[in-house]
């Protein structure tokens, strides 16, 4: 639940999602669910020339299972809270 809760806190912020097929998309995090599926708004593809079919996509749903990385906003990380949450999660699991 740690990452689900964490991403819920990031809603409204700008992130870059890099997929396992190397496609990287920047956009505003609109919502996230328990599977870490992600919905982005106001999206733009980082390497647009390589992905012409994405030209008119402005909003998208990304399946959680295909995400490699999410680049986070610098102010989206409170390190102490993350440490505590991780230790709590480690005890629970």
């Amino acid at each position: 639940m740690l990452f689900f809760s964490y991403f819920k806190e990031l809603v409204g912020k700008e992130v870059t999602v890099e997929l396992k097929n190397d496609l990287a998309i920047r956009g505003i995090l609109h919502s996230v669910d328990q599977y870490l599926n992600i919905k982005l708004e106001n999206t733009r593809v980082v390497d647009q020339d390589k992905y012409p079919h994405m030209l008119s996509v402005r909003n998208c749903f990304i399946r959680g299972s295909v995400v490699r990385y999410v680049q986070l906003p610098p102010d989206g990380v409170d390190i102490d809270i993350l440490h505590d949450a991780t230790r709590r999660e480690a005890r629970g699991g």
């Binding site: 997929l19 496609l23 008119s56 749903f61 295909v66």
Partner: peptide, 12 residues
Amino acid sequence: VLIGELDLEKEE
């Protein structure tokens, strides 16, 4: 992988 909404105002 991804489901994207096409902006009908824009060229596809």
